[in-house]
Nucleic acid binder design. Structure first.
Lengths: 342, 342
DNA sequence: TTGTATGCGTTATCAA
DNA sequence: TTGATAACGCATACAA
């Protein structure tokens, strides 16, 4: 009785193909399943019929039957920060290569990040990667109940039992401190990012500890809003006064802030970098390595970090409260004088 | 049946919640459906039970029953080009705001873009937005068969009947030509992007037509690879010879290329912009408006373009082969001299 | 290898 | 307003 219902304008289904190819519906399914037990001849008949009808398997329906959906949710910070867009690009490429996909979420500010996570949990994704957003223990419990693994990417949440993949921020900060100290800097200004994020604290922590060990350095900390304009504005308000106190060196906790910093100092105060003030960033984004900047910074090995993340998602055994600390690479750059110069 | 076993089992379903709340399963569905006919009391009972069990409706299952999945696929070019990442950010924000989501795809080069589209078609998305990738007529037929609307964003495909949202590239190119001509430029170098993309041709076309109308100008075209390093390299190979011929002005078909251009000229040849050579870009990306560049360019109104795109996807009536041409804004910038200046 | 029957988690339909 | 039951499109046992 349902033969006539076919006239409906909906999507072509495996039943339609089965009828056209003169086989059963499961055979259609098998034809599209690599390694399924099906004759080459039947498969061809099915594929031909499918092509003619314009049939494509429906991932949603298939993921209802299967355990895996082949989708991952990536919750990023603002994509206007190149670190996030570069990371997302790598995630998308890696996933797409294996026929899986990325569901993209974004959080601008930290408020309402719980809501975004809830949104993500509505999808039976194979995993959630958080490059931003704070995670409450309530959300962690939720994700566990749903059986969706969560991996923190470049973020650490102290109270929780979440697998974490992170650049060694503390060591990176320490390396930059040593480098600037060796170049003669003693009076430091630190441009901090998100006050509640773990990365700022880790990087600044490592930075300060290294300076403490070497001794003789002073450090002043300033909030920089964690983006370009925040850093730019912080420089303007700090040095806009009649006779500001100029530091020897500035450590911005990420590259996009270092760039804002450099633009503000050079454009408005005629400061030369590194001659007048040294500058270091963190992340190693492309933009920071271009002609006008050539930042001294620590490069986060995004490719390795993404691989680690996907490995954790793919192997349930790795999902424990592990902390994968991947060392960053110090990029010498031109914004910190070499040891002994000047 | 320990608690642990429960957590290890598959996802909590509406049946579990129904049992816990002492109602039928459809009532659970109603409780999560805004405007459904259900008592406030029942809804509360359900929501309470859901919270306790950690239940969240499964979007995939729901989209099997409903017509809409609440998902859109966005196929972008490389996200390391700020224009694409800025656009994606706007798409994600707009969609997320209404509880819908973006499935992110990426194409690096144009080869295999058909494959990426096929990937996207496997998902019962409510629409596909193409900001990159070429579309073959076969793919168009496919998407029509599946009932998935496709909107071209910042890309035009002459042969097909696809709704298109685009900045007025030709007018923008013309405006830049007039501006540089008025500033005294006569010998032009045009740095082209993807030779097969419509944007390059439209922009350069408008640029040349405007110059032709004014007369007395010469134009040389060069391929620039459509990204930073391509543009940078093009400058190096063109002007690296002993006595190169320097143009009066350069028009790079997009901002990221203009930036690569500026970095190469200033860093390697000591060229001053605009004193020695004028420079114009296209797109109006954030990066291009920062201190070291302040590009003279045409800003693509991404927000409006995204709104238009979503409107087309939301209203089937708008989906015809329409071309929505949205005017861009000329940003004066500092890389082209003002009229009359030396 | 192939077909039959059933399950996946939700919404839609129609009685009650 | 509620509940029973049938789709939705595919994959997986199991039988043939």
């Amino acid at each position: 009785m349902s033969e006539l219902k076919k006239a409906r304008r909906s999507r072509v289904t495996s039943f339609d193909v089965a009828r056209a190819a003169g086989v059963s519906q499961p055979s259609v399914s098998r034809a599209f399943t690599p390694g399924a037990s099906i004759t080459e001849e039947t498969r061809n008949r099915v594929l031909t019929a499918a092509r003619e009808l314009g049939y494509v398997p429906n991932v949603f329906a298939s993921s209802l039957s299967k355990k895996s959906s082949g989708m991952i949710a990536v919750i990023s910070g603002n994509l206007n920060n190149p670190f996030y867009s570069e990371s997302l690009q790598v995630f998308v490429e890696n996933f797409q290569r294996t026929g899986r996909q990325v569901l993209a979420f974004s959080v601008r500010d930290q408020t309402g990040s719980d809501e975004v996570i809830m949104q993500a949990l509505r999808y039976p994704v194979d995993g959630i990667v958080m490059t931003s957003a704070r995670v409450t223990s309530e959300m962690v419990k939720m994700s566990e109940g749903l059986g969706i693994p969560v991996v923190m990417f470049n973020r650490r949440v102290p109270g929780t039992n979440l697998a974490t993949v992170q650049c060694d921020n503390a060591s990176g900060g320490a390396a930059l401190a040593r480098r600037m100290h060796a170049a003669g800097a003693r009076d430091f200004l630190v441009l901090r990012g998100d006050p509640l994020g773990s990365t700022t604290n880790d990087r600044v922590g490592g930075f300060r500890r290294a300076l403490d060990e070497m001794g003789g350095a002073t450090v002043t900390e300033v909030e920089g809003g964690s983006n370009y304009s925040g850093a730019y504005g912080a420089m303007m308000s700090r040095f806009g006064s009649p006779s500001p106190r100029w530091p020897d060196a500035i450590f911005a906790v990420n590259d996009i802030m270092a760039i804002g910093c450099a633009d503000a100092l050079r454009g408005n105060f005629g400061i030369r970098i590194p001659e007048d003030i040294m500058l270091a960033g963190f992340d190693g984004i492309r933009e920071g390595q271009r002609e006008p900047y050539r930042l001294t910074t620590v490069r986060q090995p995004i490719e390795s970090m993404v691989s680690e993340t996907l490995a954790i998602l793919d192997h349930p055994g790795l999902r424990g409260p592990s902390l994968r600390l991947i060392p960053g690479d110090l990029i010498p750059g031109n914004t910190v004088r070499a040891r002994g110069e000047a």
